[in-house]
Design a binder for these strands. Structure first.
Lengths: 191, 191, 191, 191
DNA sequence: AATGAATGAGGTTTCATTCAT
DNA sequence: TATGAATGAAACCTCATTCAT
């Protein structure tokens, strides 16, 4: 009966929010956004449907939160805004680490790829995606410029595309796709 | 005795089926499968909802038909079963032609990519997808074997992944993505 | 190209009508009225949906026709209006013949029983059913009156009910229900 | 933490479920299963369509629930598994009580008879029906065996059929059918 | 903060019936 | 007479969201 402190409440809130997001991420990634009902999320998380609406205003906003949270987590690992330039070794390191992260957090990436190709979902987050992606693209452009490439923008977009292709194939067929070897092949292109 | 000849009926059927499929393809590709209702397809095509069910047993089967029809169309262009082996020049030609086709038939590919990453939709067509994809993979494996590569399977999967990555990025951002240059860069890797 | 005579047309009409009714009877009896579609009847009969509407104005009217036709067929066997009175031997004979007919034309009776218990279908044919049933009831009432029974109406309704009960159980479980013995037991009650 | 106690929820659920089942029973019995829409049930019960699906997974399952619930209610009155044997007086008592129940709960029986004769509905519940019916049949068989009848099984099936016949005729024409007298006539056969 | 009963809009699907040919 | 493509009303069902408690 003792009233909880403001901080205790805050902790509960954070915990519950995380629980909901984790559950939703797994389900969205594995079953698909449209094939996952709020009810299913609630049941899987062991909470009530209503509670989800205490933390998220809608299913759509829950999805957005997941996407942005995924981006944030990613950004924490690879902050493209540190000093602005990277060396060749750093690029290799970044690529390897990225794909390591991909492997560890496959759900996020499943969701990410699934979402990116879903037209109407894409529209929802389009603007923010570009906001997030731009600094990384710029980082690459700068790198290739520094490397003396003729068309750094082209190089950057090519690398991004290739990276996503490898990621996508791994996500689609994680059991057979030779991820590590492909990554090394990719890195080898940028010696 | 029959008021229209068998052939007349056949023509009507072919025409209507095509109309429905074309309409559905555009809508599925641009709005997403789940965000396109049968009613919307019917209205767009200028027909009744019921008629769609004269031609397809369900929305799902309509989607399947679209996917397989897309595959078939693709397969008509690039039959991997011709003689079984391709030369370097043929590979280059194939890659260029494929991406030309990608550009022309963007809707199909939007659908294809969207589908591949949608877990529950993928399940629907998984088996067939592999049936279709296998000969192409084999073609590439054989090519790289002939080229004396150490790990032809790896090479084949790498190329597929890279190709899909480029395709995906083009589809996602057709206005800005430098498709032709990327394709040439890709081809340059296989000189 | 030779024009058919009026009579030939009439023959065709009769033939087709019979075909439709026979098909519908089988399907209605075995699958249920509501579970049988006009399309299914047409396909089973090897004709077109439209043709059915040349002979019957609606599915409901087709059902009515079947019911009345069943009654008529039945009435041809057992005309209750002959001389108005029957002897004990005639009653026994009638009962045995009725159940023989039941066995032979199970479909009609399946339909009949199914229909009688379907409220809204019953409403459709209620009036006619009574018209048909009344003479038979009267025949029985007269018989029991002649036999000196205290309450002939009660006797008549009892016998009808018992007869229908046996019929119903036979129809529901034709493989196990001991029809002949039950009929003999029934007849034994009216020695 | 929960705003209503578990018990409160349970009460609400029981009440609503009963409301839905009562409403559906009346409508199914009087209008027929196929002629009663979920919407009609909802409107009659003064609730939303959706709510019905909180309690029953489908219209079919609602029907099943009704049938089994009817059986259960019936079984509570006449448990055939008590001691296994009944005396003549008990048989008379049972028959009288059964038909009293029939009169009181005509809806259930209307449904029951309607269902038994509807081919595809029967299939749904066939197995369970036999499970329910078997003990009663056995009770009768045992009774007639004890009474020294030559063919107890025949006697049991005959009595069941006759009973159903009387029930059916009463249900079909409750205003005119002389139920009590018929029941007494029936009982008189088993002195 | 938390529950889950309740809603209702909207989706897919069925099918009796029409009608141009 | 005969066809079957086409319609559209109405059915079943789902599910995001609300809200009293």
């Amino acid at each position: 009966m003792s009233p909880r402190t403001e901080q205790q409440y805050e902790e509960i809130r954070e915990e519950k929010k995380k629980l909901i997001m984790d559950t939703a991420l797994q389900l969205f990634a594995n079953e698909g956004y449209h094939n996952t009902s709020i009810d299913q999320i609630a049941r899987t998380a062991g909470i009530s449907k209503g509670l989800i609406y205490n933390y998220f205003t809608s299913k759509e906003q829950l999805l957005q939160s997941l996407i942005f949270s995924g981006f944030d987590e990613f950004a924490q690992f690879f902050d493209p805004n540190r000093d602005g330039v990277i060396e060749k070794e750093e690029l290799h390191y970044l690529l390897r680490e990225m794909f390591k992260l991909l492997k560890e957090k496959m759900s996020v990436w499943k969701l990410y790829f699934g979402i990116m190709l879903q037209p109407q979902v894409m529209k929802m987050v389009e603007k923010e995606v570009y906001q997030y992606a731009l600094p990384y693209l710029k980082l690459l452009v700068d790198y290739f410029k520094k490397e003396g490439k003729e068309n750094p923008y082209l190089e950057a977009r090519f690398l991004s595309a290739v990276g996503d292709g490898i990621g996508m194939h791994y996500i689609t067929d994680p059991d057979n796709f030779p991820l590590e070897e492909c990554v090394e092949k990719l890195i080898a292109l940028y010696q």
